[in-house]
Design a protein around this nucleic acid. Structure first.
Length: 227
DNA sequence: GAACCGATTTCCT
DNA sequence: GGAAATCGGTTCT
């Protein structure tokens, strides 16, 4: 379909093996690439860091379980989990093998394949609304058609809908350019602008100081950042 | 086996 | 600003 697409350079994944806060800043601006049946590319514009077993906001706070096992593995691997029984979330594992840490991809700015993303959002919505009235479903279709490109993946669950990411992608190596889902480097010379930071979202269960740690990072002023 | 809760999103008051 | 949808994980009984 997109015969003119040239894959960019792979993401320099050694950056993910270092400390997660540095890795978070490195990952901002990088590409998320989905291949197969056309191509979808987006720019990562918002991430959150979950660092170590003592981070009481992290899934790793209970130790190693079947769900979070890949957080304890090598960096550059995808950790995908289901939240609220409804939405998938994508993380990029960071730090040394054996130490549980990851970056939650909270928002992506669509660059290529926006129609595929919109279609994927639609499929996900149809599945979720299957048991709802046809009236409700039609309203959702209209809403998605009118949604600006910048809003397609402006939340962690929406990123996974747009890129068709689910349990099948858990433990996938995002640093292997041959993977159907992988990371790419931002083009040389692309201006990234400033980076802002603040507390993480949706972790009200966590005690201080974890609740207030400014471990959410985003590209300042980017229109695709989540609300 | 039951109760409670969640790294979300959308709709309604 | 509050609630619902929905299911897997954790922590009890």
């Amino acid at each position: 379909v997109l015969a003119g697409y040239r894959p960019g350079k792979p993401f320099p994944c050694r950056l993910l093996a270092s400390d997660s806060l540095t890795a978070a800043r490195s990952l901002l601006g990088a590409r998320l690439v989905r291949k197969g049946d056309g191509i979808r590319v987006g720019r990562i514009v918002e991430v959150e860091a979950y660092i170590g077993q003592d981070d009481l906001a992290s899934h790793a706070r209970f130790g190693r379980t079947r769900r979070n096992a890949v957080m304890f593995g090598p960096s550059g691997v995808a950790y995908v989990y289901l939240v609220y029984g409804m939405y998938n979330c994508l993380n990029v594992v960071t730090e040394a093998n054996g130490r549980p840490a990851a970056l939650l991809v909270r928002a992506v700015e669509p660059l290529l394949g926006m129609e595929l993303m919109r279609q994927a959002r639609l499929s996900a919505s149809e599945a979720r609304l299957a048991r709802r009235s046809s009236d409700r479903r039609e309203r959702e279709r209209a809403r998605l058609r009118a949604l600006p490109d910048d809003a397609l993946a402006s939340g962690p669950g929406l990123v996974c809908d747009c890129f068709s990411i689910g349990p099948a992608e858990d433990a996938l190596d995002l640093c292997d350019p041959a993977s159907t889902l992988c990371l790419g480097e931002a083009p040389r010379g692309e201006s990234r602008g400033g980076i802002s930071s603040g507390p993480r979202i949706g972790i009200g269960y966590a005690p201080e100081p974890w609740l207030s740690r400014p471990w959410r990072f985003w590209l300042t002023g980017n229109p695709a950042v989540s609300r």
